[in-house]
Design a protein around this nucleic acid. Structure first.
Length: 480
RNA sequence: CGGGGCGUAGCGCAGCCUGGUAGCGCGUCUGGUUUGGGACCAGAAGGUCGCCGGUUCGAGUCCGGCCGCCCCGACCA
């Protein structure tokens, strides 16, 4: 390791040796977020928010094709509404922040600061939906929710977090379930194709489903500390909320029916997952598709400064149409300082241009994923930069997938399951008879929880606890 | 909510055991030389040592209380 990077390590601890400290340092140093005066609530700084905006842009564009539209519902949920769905309130009650006063006056009914919006959206659906012609309702909401967490981590678990929640209502079970699967696939694309985070998709076992849902679909990613993280969820709510809030419609057969509803969300936790998945000892590393700055141009000034700067400006202008480009023409920092600074901020591709390059119509290209310096001709610089961005995107996903795949093992016995979780962490695949008692036995023995049951599951073995024929294959892991 | 650690300059820390003029590195400011992996020289500014109380001639240091934060567990997106 060079002396330069040793100096750098003093600011960012080793990812391999001090993962938690490394993670926090990267979030703070790369200026993604900061701690706020409000306990458990983070401040999302502009650079971190730009990542969220990237996710917003992609999802808004993607959902245009499916007919979902954005709306907004109140921050406050009257207690009586939250209580209408029994499982729902039971699940969320321990984490709800309550408003008890308006000005000096105590409220007749206290208001929950929404931990999720079903209980304030479904009453409106009851008002809006009369006929099968009013269905489906496909609404989205960008907002924040509050869950009074005991322990918080930047992005991964904060008392208030930004998210994107969808709430739909349908005429049939099949259509609502298909909606859940459609969303799951959109989220998979976001995770894998944009954020370059490989995920296992499937269903949650009942013990892990959303409070009030009939079943929950999930996307599970594996972080470098080999703990699983739930990266997104899509809930089939059945008719539970429709009954609780009396959301009925008159169907074609002239009978009144409850709607079938779904809800689903991804959160700013995605940013935390992104940081953990791709970052290294030099700091943040961003997949090009989400990077606010895809290409940074660092001019090597000096005696021929004016000429180099003009060439750098021309290069930035040429690349503008093919990439999000930043020209770092600050005079007060040296090139070496800028190299480290932009690497720490995760910029996927760097172009250096100095007197030597200007003289020979070239630039030096460096990818955040490594591979050293590459001299490239300016003749076809647009296509080379586009290709380099694709390469970085692909490399990041492939590295993450290789890591994930290397940490999936199958265990047929309780002993093997325990050993795998203890020694290897990661995902451990096992068969399951479907009973809660056998699941609890595994939880207790391993400290891991069941994360996901694959969609195309075809169980063939026997339950490692009771020996009965399996009804499902389950991936266990320790989880965030 | 349990276990551990930490609050001293903008940031990172030393000093505390053994009380006696507030220190170091980075950053900042000024001037100059520099610029292909965190530049160099010279000069300068910057502090109610987390808060409250006690002991003492004297407290960053010792004692008591409080507050805040971080890390590790248990619960959760």
């Amino acid at each position: 390791m060079s002396t330069e990077s040793q100096a750098f390590v003093k600011e960012i601890p080793s990812k391999a040796e001090a993962f938690s400290d490394w993670y926090t340092a990267v979030c703070l140093k790369a200026e993604l977020a900061d701690y706020s005066p409000v306990r458990g609530c983070m401040v999302v700084r502009p650079y971190g928010y730009a990542l969220w905006e990237g996710i917003q842009r992609w999802l808004d564009e993607r959902f245009k094709a499916t007919g979902h539209v954005n709306a907004y519902f109140p921050l406050f949920v009257p207690e009586s509404y939250l209580k209408k769905e029994a499982e729902h309130v039971e699940g969320f009650a321990p984490q709800v922040a309550w408003v008890t006063h308006g000005g000096d006056e105590e409220l007749a009914e206290r208001l929950a600061v929404r931990p999720t919006s079903e209980a304030i959206i479904l009453p409106m659906y009851a008002k809006w939906i009369q006929s099968y012609r009013d269905l489906p309702v496909l609404l989205l909401q960008w907002n924040s929710v509050v869950r009074w967490e005991k322990a918080t981590r930047l992005f991964l678990r904060t008392a208030e977090f930004l998210w994107h929640e969808g709430h739909t209502a349908h005429a049939t079970l099949e259509e609502a379930d298909q909606e859940c699967l459609t969303i799951l696939e959109i989220y998979r694309q976001l995770l894998e194709d944009v954020l370059a985070i490989p995920v296992l998709t499937g269903k949650k076992p009942d013990s892990e489903k959303f409070a009030g849902a009939d079943w929950t679909y999930t996307l599970e990613a594996l972080m470098p500390d080999r703990q699983a993280i739930q990266a997104g969820t899509s809930h089939f709510l059945g008719q539970n909320f429709a009954r609780a809030f009396n959301v009925k419609f008159l169907d074609r057969d002239n009978t009144e029916k409850y709607v079938w509803s779904t809800s689903w969300a991804v959160t700013t936790r995605l940013i935390g997952s992104l940081v953990m998945t791709h970052g290294d000892d030099r700091g943040l590393a961003l997949p090009p598709k989400i990077a606010p700055v895809q290409v940074v141009i660092v001019p090597i000034l000096g005696k021929a400064g004016a000429e180099v700067l003009a060439a750098a400006r021309a290069l930035a202008a040429r690349l503008g149409p093919v990439a999000r480009v930043k020209l770092d023409d600050r005079d007060e920092y040296t090139p070496g300082w800028k190299f480290n600074d932009w690497e720490m901020r995760g910029v996927p591709v760097r172009l250096e241009i100095g007197p030597r390059d200007v003289a020979s119509n070239q630039a030096v290209l460096v990818k955040r994923t490594g591979g050293g310096k590459e001299t490239v001709s300016l003749d076809a610089i647009e296509s080379r930069v586009s290709a380099a961005l694709d390469e970085v995107q692909r490399t990041m996903f492939e590295q993450a997938r290789a890591f994930r795949d290397a940490h999936i093992v199958t265990a047929a016995t309780l002993d093997a399951l325990e050993a795998a979780i203890r020694d290897r962490r990661g995902f451990v695949r096992t068969d399951w008879c479907g009973t809660q008692s056998c699941e609890d036995a595994i939880r207790e023995r391993t400290g891991a929880s069941p994360r996901v049951i694959p969609l195309d599951d075809r169980p063939s073995g026997t339950c490692p606890v009771c020996g009965k024929p399996a009804t499902a294959t389950v991936y266990y892991a320790r989880a965030y």
